[in-house]
């Protein structure tokens, strides 16, 4: 992971910044330069709320090599109040307890590390509500 690539995603990965179209109100995560719905090019920056609803999930048993030590791990898609959907790992919960429709919250975690010596890619994962 080249550091610049990690750094430029920080607003999205660290703070869940999304772009809200100033004209039609559509929300995009990550940001876009042109609205997919109406073609407008001006946006407000908003933060996606911390709790989302799980709409589907899987448990991955054969990951890419950088995720080998975490396998098997759950990956899910959550839908948030603002209308955006986000894919992330579902952690701190046994696979058998994961249910579609459940509320999950965003937590700050290491998502990927570039080996033992490279940069640490921080970001969001989904965890059960406490």
């Amino acid at each position: 992971m080249f550091p610049a690539r990690v750094a430029r995603e920080m607003p999205h990965r660290y703070r869940l910044e999304a772009a809200k179209c100033k004209k039609c109100g559509a929300v995009f995560f990550p940001h876009r330069l042109i609205c997919r719905e109406c073609g407008h090019r001006e946006f407000d920056t908003i933060n996606v709320s911390a709790i989302g609803k799980l709409i589907s999930y899987t448990v991955i048993h054969t990951p890419a090599s950088q995720f080998k030590d975490e396998s098997p791990f759950a990956l899910g898609i959550c839908e948030f109040l603002e209308g955006v959907k986000i894919t992330a790992q579902v952690v701190d919960i046994a696979a058998a307890d994961i249910k579609t429709g459940m509320d999950l919250q965003i937590e700050f975690r290491r998502v990927q590390t570039d080996g033992h010596a490279g940069v640490i890619g921080y970001g969001y994962k989904f965890v059960p509500l406490i």
């Binding site: 991955i60 995720f67 992330a88 994962k125």
Partner: peptide, 12 residues
Amino acid sequence: FHGATFPGLYAL
């Protein structure tokens, strides 16, 4: 970046 694989996406 979050660990998605192709089988994983189709599994969703």
